[in-house]
Write a protein that binds this DNA or RNA. Structure first.
Lengths: 337, 337
DNA sequence: TCACCTGATGTAATCGGTTACATGAAACCG
DNA sequence: CGGTTTCATGTAACCGATTACATCAGGTGA
């Protein structure tokens, strides 16, 4: 691989001039610029990023901390996967590469600095966190560090940290309103884990809209799941045992909604005839299962672009991190309501 | 950030000794090692990877080239997403980080070297290609380069390139055998694009097994799709118009299988009563749609670990790339057959 | 004519590591 | 006891860029 010295020698100029051609072309004369560029193309010269990073401390890489908790395989969650790939393309348009970080080999498996160390070693310009809500100390260590940091679908803040979430409350409200408009008056909900913030917000919005419409929500009509299929099935089974049974259910996640539909069918009932179901997330299955799951969609592409933009703002060197971004949610009508 | 010189000064040793403590600890005396390690922990010293890479030309990063063709958004395919995350964790266990490469900013959008350039600039130790089969020149440029390279679910070979695929022919055979055992004698298939190698292999295996059982396969019972849902629906519609109509269908991808099921239902027929359906891939939906899709599963985790191992072998410096890996496929029984 | 500015370029220190080679002390051996 | 190993460590060149500062030629204005 040819170095900058080699290129400089061939052009009969100094290394400084070559460097300027690539970094501040406007201070180099037309003539020299052409010469250097031409020769660079000819011998296939490419600046070495490691050397640049060493000198400038900017790596043009964003570190991704993903799925830190191996006991809860968040990586299987299609929603998070969609966000990941959206993030990658958004960063690409800014010329940033995404480094999926392995924990630092010098740190033990439980070391709270295992990701922070990896971040520091690699001189990444910023960090994005995608995780399924486990309050892993290794993640919190990042949030408190001085590296610019953006958390996706998690409410983390810090001196250099902001976050992106959907308008979960608005989405919950959307779901309730839709069911009310469809004429339902006895509506139950399958919510997420109590300590999960997005889940709590969805429930809060849902509650508000019901209250505004003067529709009561009994405690027994609120059942918690864990966002995965089986919990939705179990919760729905419980709800079907109620008397009178609810005519509609809002599940705070699509997988749980699918589980609920399964339970309803197994009870010999029909969707949406006997019980209407609305979900949240709009993952791929939502469109594929019959009769099609009506759901509140989250803007996965928006997560990616918002994260990239927040990061760019912080890289530009603002004093305080940008405000958290809240992405609008919208209703997707399908056959289940 | 404290440097190696700072640490050496504090310990009263030379930088060479400190470097040895981290790279070849066995040549350093117990005593000094303890001293250096202790002081390193105290002042929070971490070796700078950019500097190491500059000196050693090993970055401990694997470049990922993902979804090069924006007209065909392969990133939406759940199967590829599953492979991606499996790859990430497999590499983690080897202490390798995964760098999702953006095209080199110095190259135009159509430049066939836009990924190769990014690879070279960043000194990545190897490259993994995950792509939806578009024969993008920018991908082929990588395959022909001297950087170790592994292609996933693509049949690419080169001087330093090997690939991982499933036993697609075996999977096709599995599907056929299963349907035959279930008593079907008129079996159709929805295959993938003609030029797609995995699709062709699945079809070949399927054909063989039918032939061995003495069951004919009419040309009209073979319809091509493009792996996406709608094409499966369209293909099935065509097949249902046949007289007599097939009693079972093998779809070479789960999304197409789901589309087929939809078409069958819309025609007022039942799965598996009137038409049995078997898919390929085992994506998430397969388990979620009623009645559950019987399918041939690909080992996504296996893709990740095999890729990591092939890469490790090449990094160890073998003369020739390792043989391509073929991962076994297995039958997953669910309700659709 | 001289002092001064401007624009293009060069010199050399620096970023933070690795490593070939040199050094020196202690151990070993006949 | 002199010579040879062996072990632990140090010295300094090097990896490939960036950039503060110096230099120098040509142009400007008084």
């Amino acid at each position: 691989m040819s170095s900058i010295r080699e290129l400089a020698r061939r052009c009969g100029v100094s290394v400084a001039t070559v460097s300027r051609v690539f970094n501040t072309p406007e201070v180099v004369s037309q003539q020299t610029r052409q010469l250097v560029l031409g020769m660079a193309a000819e011998i296939g010269y490419l600046p070495n990023e490691s050397a640049r990073t060493l000198a400038t401390k900017k790596s043009h890489m964003v570190g991704l901390v993903w799925d830190t908790d191996h006991r809860r395989p968040g990586w299987r969650h299609p929603f998070l996967q969609d966000i990941l790939v959206a993030l990658k393309s958004a960063l690409s348009t800014h010329g940033l590469h995404l480094l999926m970080l392995a924990p630092d080999p010098g740190a033990g498996p439980g070391d709270p600095r295992r990701f922070l160390r990896a971040v520091q070693r690699h001189n990444v310009d910023g960090v994005v966190i995608i995780d399924n809500g486990s309050r892993d100390p290794a993640v919190l260590a990042l949030v408190d560090a001085e590296v610019p940091c953006v958390a996706l679908d998690l409410r983390f803040t810090g001196p250099n940290c902001t976050y992106i979430t959907s308008d979960n409350a608005g989405g919950g409200r959307l779901a309730a309103t839709h069911l009310i408009e469809r004429g339902h008056r006895h509506i139950a909900t399958i919510t997420g884990p109590a300590r999960n913030w997005p889940a709590a917000q969805r429930l809060a919005g849902f509650r508000e809209a019901l209250a505004e419409a003067g529709i009561p929500l009994a405690d027994d009509d609120v059942v918690a799941g864990d966002f995965y299929l089986d919990s939705g099935h179990a919760a729905m089974t419980k709800l079907l045992a109620r008397d009178p049974r609810p005519t509609a259910v809002f599940a705070a996640g699509d997988e749980m909604a699918v589980g609920a539909i399964k339970a309803i069918r197994e009870a010999g009932l029909r969707v949406p005839g006997d019980v209407a179901v609305i979900g949240f997330d709009d993952i791929e299955v939502a469109a594929l299962i019959p009769p099609g799951l009506t759901t509140v969609t989250q803007d996965k592409t928006g997560f990616g672009t918002a994260a990239a933009e927040s990061l760019m703002a912080m890289l530009a060197g603002t004093a305080t991190p940008p405000e958290p971004t809240t992405l609008p949610t919208t209703l997707i009508l399908r056959g289940s309501t």
